[in-house]
Amino acid sequence: MTEGILEFGRALYINTSDVLTGVVRNNALSTGRSLLQVIWDLRLGREDLVSSPLFPVILSVAFYFSLCTPFMIADIYGKKWKWIQKYKIQTDKEVTLDQVFDTLSLTFWNHVLFILPAAVGQMIWTPPTPLPELAPSWFEFIWQQIASLVVFDFQYFVWHWTHHKVRFLYRHIHSVHHRYHSPFVWVTQYLHPWELVTVGFLTTTNTWFFKCHPMTTWSYMLLSIVVSVEAHIGFDLPFCFNNILPFGMIGGAPKHDMHHLKPQTNFSPFFNHWDKTFDTFCPPMKAGGVRPKNLVEYERRTKEIKKVC
């Protein structure tokens, strides 16, 4: 008799839990999470893979190489493709196979010698990622990624400025990235190992400040890669962030190209506000190598200041 009552209680509890879970899920779907929930539910049946500490590493590395490859093809085989060459910023610079091999070689060895051991260590010492039942809300999903980008932008502005102003740091670390005055896509991670580790650490830990949902964290990682790659492609394409977002808030490839030409300017990786605040902003060239009036005026003032000094 007692066992029958206990069994009935367990069955009632399970059924009630299922009902409540369904109610919570339906409420989530009805409040605007539906698309995010559909995407998040793709993890079902793949929890062991998705919760593995290796998953974000594999995801980001695969995404980085997949994103860079089309731009490499355009650099090497698209020299006569007028439809894309009209968007090139430094029109007098060509990307060669030797340059591609050089940048890819350093990228490969950085991944083998530093990223891979870090990933193995993470797999050994980091517990599996908890996977919530529900996807994040759209509000959380969007604002937490923007906030993480803003925080990283300030962190890297300070790091970047310091590594240009301290001669030892520039000479032995950051100068690696500045080997190329005309960036192309594989220059994105053409970095000294210390810079690669620093950037990776800051990108990974920024979402911890906001206790982000795993889906938000992984999306932010991919968004960071998109913005970083975009800044180094050497093309001012119409659909890039600097052309579609208002108020000139994003610098994009034009701004970062100018940093490689004028290394004491444009230290922020994404946004423009810190460079404008600390007077390190240099107006960029535009598609086709066009030098706008504000850039011409900036260079005129800079020359006058140098003559006085």
Rank of each mutant, 00 (worst) to 15 (best):
A231G: 11
G234T: 01
R171Y: 06
L134D: 03
F65G: 14
R171S: 08
R10V: 12
Q99D: 02
G9K: 15
H164N: 05
L54C: 07
N242K: 06
F114P: 03
A287G: 04
G78F: 00
I244P: 01
L6V: 13
N26Y: 04
I58M: 12
P193K: 00
T204G: 05
T216G: 02
T31C: 15
L222R: 00
Y220L: 03
G288N: 05
H164Y: 07
F63H: 06
Q189G: 13
D48E: 14
G234D: 05
Q144L: 12
N110F: 02
F247C: 04
I89V: 02
V166F: 14
T2R: 10
L131A: 06
F63W: 08
D153G: 03
Y13N: 11
G9A: 15
Q85A: 02
N206P: 09
V296I: 11
L49P: 07
D92A: 06
V290Q: 03
T198V: 12
G45V: 07
T203A: 14
V150R: 15
Y180N: 10
W138S: 12
V229M: 02
M221I: 13
Q189F: 12
E140P: 14
G121Q: 09
V166R: 10
H160C: 04
W109I: 05
H178L: 09
H260D: 00
L116G: 05
K93L: 10
T91N: 01
P292I: 01
W208N: 09
V226E: 05
V50L: 13
H259C: 02
M1E: 11
L131G: 04
R300T: 07
F239M: 08
E297K: 12
G78R: 00
D102H: 11
H172C: 15
S51T: 05
T126S: 09
C212Q: 07
K276Y: 00
H160P: 01
Y180T: 13
K88M: 01
I39Y: 15
W81L: 07
I73C: 06
L106D: 08
E304H: 09
D102E: 15
S105H: 09
Y190P: 09
G288Q: 03
K165S: 12
V112E: 04
R300I: 06
E195P: 01
P246T: 10
E230D: 04
F63D: 08
A119Y: 08
R301F: 07
Y77I: 05
L149A: 05
I89F: 00
I58H: 10
M285W: 00
H174Q: 06
H192N: 07
S52T: 02
G200M: 06
K86W: 04
F241S: 09
K79F: 10
L104A: 13
P128V: 10
I84D: 01
A135L: 08
D257W: 01
P254I: 04
L20I: 14
